[in-house]
Amino acid sequence: MILNFSFKLTAAKGKLWCSFSLYKRYRVVSTAPVDVLWQKLINLADVSWHPLFSQANVPLGLIAKPGLIYQVVTRLTPIPIRLFVENVRPGELLSLRVLAIPGMEQKITYQVESTLCGSYISYSVTLRGWLSPLIWWLIKPYSARVASELANAAERLV
């Protein structure tokens, strides 16, 4: 687990500006093959393994492709939020941007890699904006479980 944050308070032209950014990374080892992990991850309709998302509004079988925008409903609120698929490197990386609240920017990155010890799943969250401390306080318990829940879901398939 890697935590990196910065907080800047600046004054300019008689106004006070607050800048906050946070980067958090979680890493888990799984016994499931990378292919199984990747298929579970890019199936956007199946969010049953995700501790924060309860449902997605995409057709069954739709896989992640760059430029795709879709909506998910969180377990915290019934209000849907939009996700933008930024980058996909098949079998390696999936990068999403959360388009939810003005004043906050959130980027989510999943990485999977195969090693001699098993498959590694890396889940990274980057938050920027003045609302970031509040959002982090809300989603922190869920974010800590995302990588392990993905590993458990993939291992149940094997």
Score class of each variant (00 low, 15 high):
residue 135 I to S: 09
residue 151 A to T: 00
residue 114 S to C: 09
residue 74 T to G: 13
residue 67 G to H: 06
residue 36 V to W: 03
residue 107 K to N: 11
residue 38 W to L: 03
residue 39 Q to E: 14
residue 89 R to V: 12
residue 58 V to C: 05
residue 133 P to W: 06
residue 17 W to S: 13
residue 153 A to W: 00
residue 23 Y to W: 10
residue 149 E to G: 00
residue 57 N to Q: 10
residue 130 W to R: 14
residue 58 V to Y: 07
residue 98 V to L: 15
residue 29 V to G: 12
residue 144 A to S: 15
residue 2 I to W: 07
residue 116 L to F: 09
residue 68 L to S: 02
residue 91 G to Y: 01
residue 151 A to N: 05
residue 81 I to W: 06
residue 107 K to R: 14
residue 120 Y to A: 04
residue 135 I to E: 07
residue 40 K to P: 00
residue 150 L to R: 05
residue 16 L to C: 09
residue 6 S to I: 08
residue 1 M to V: 10
residue 37 L to E: 02
residue 156 R to W: 07
residue 84 F to W: 11
residue 98 V to I: 11
residue 82 R to F: 06
residue 131 L to M: 10
residue 90 P to N: 09
residue 120 Y to S: 05
residue 65 K to S: 07
residue 87 N to E: 14
residue 16 L to V: 13
residue 157 L to G: 03
residue 111 Q to L: 12
residue 23 Y to I: 11
residue 98 V to F: 03
residue 64 A to Y: 00
residue 133 P to G: 05
residue 23 Y to S: 15
residue 105 E to H: 11
residue 124 S to W: 01
residue 112 V to G: 00
residue 7 F to T: 12
residue 4 N to W: 11
residue 110 Y to A: 00
residue 154 A to L: 02
residue 109 T to D: 10
residue 109 T to K: 07
residue 136 W to E: 15
residue 28 V to A: 03
residue 114 S to D: 13
residue 75 R to S: 11
residue 71 Q to F: 04
residue 18 C to A: 14
residue 9 L to Q: 10
residue 78 P to A: 04
residue 95 S to I: 00
residue 27 R to V: 14
residue 50 H to Q: 09
residue 132 S to L: 05
residue 150 L to T: 03
